[in-house]
């Protein structure tokens, strides 16, 4: 694992009391999870016991202790989304991807999470895929979106393979 980005984050941290939270936020963004190595390194650099760093990483929902997938699917489970069909959306996504909330698919492609409200209640139910908001979702629409992503990923993989082949030939 490349820890250079982690060192950069630690180098640029402020002196505030909440600096450790900021570090964890940045590490989560950079690596998509808080690894064991990262916890140990943060503990050394900030002079905080390993158990304390682990406790923070474990307590706050923003942090994940396992790697997240290449695509993050967030199904909003706020009240407005709930009464307008969010549970069915979640079911559809989980059934299609054969995974559980908070877990990542075996191929590392998708992580499905729920969030307790995104504050886009007027558009309920809402699903966020890789940072883009999709409003007034139905199980059918979400299924089509997932199929599009899979299709694009396959295209990208094919292109990668072609590039590798082209390079090999050259």
């Amino acid at each position: 694992m490349d820890l250079s980005r982690l060192e950069e984050i630690l180098d640029s941290k402020g002196s505030e009391t909440f600096a450790i939270m900021e570090v964890l936020q940045d590490v989560q963004e950079a690596y998509r999870y808080i690894s064991e190595e990262a916890i140990v390194r943060i503990s050394e650099r900030l002079d905080v016991p390993v158990i304390e760093v682990f406790r923070l990483a474990n307590f706050y929902k923003a942090f994940s202790l396992t790697p997240r997938g290449r695509h993050l699917i967030t199904v909003c489970a706020g009240t407005a989304c709930h009464v307008q069909g969010a549970p069915r959306l979640l079911d559809t996504v989980l059934a299609l991807l054969n995974t559980k909330p908070g877990e990542t698919t075996a191929d590392g492609a998708f992580t499905v999470e729920t969030v307790n409200c995104l504050g886009a209640c007027a558009l309920a139910p809402v699903v966020v895929i890789d940072g883009k908001y999709y409003d007034h979702m139905t199980p059918g629409k979400v299924r089509a979106l997932l199929e599009d992503i899979r299709f694009e990923d396959e295209l990208a993989e094919d292109e990668d393979e072609e590039e590798v082949e082209a390079e090999a030939n050259a």
Binding site: T17, A19, I20, M21, Y60, K61, F63, N116
Partner: peptide, 18 residues
């Protein structure tokens, strides 16, 4: 950090203290 309980004043301040 995405914890609902941090909307409570003392929990929020604990979070601010890292």
């Amino acid at each position: 950090g995405g914890a609902f309980v941090c909307g409570e004043s003392t929990a929020l301040m604990a979070s601010l203290e890292g």
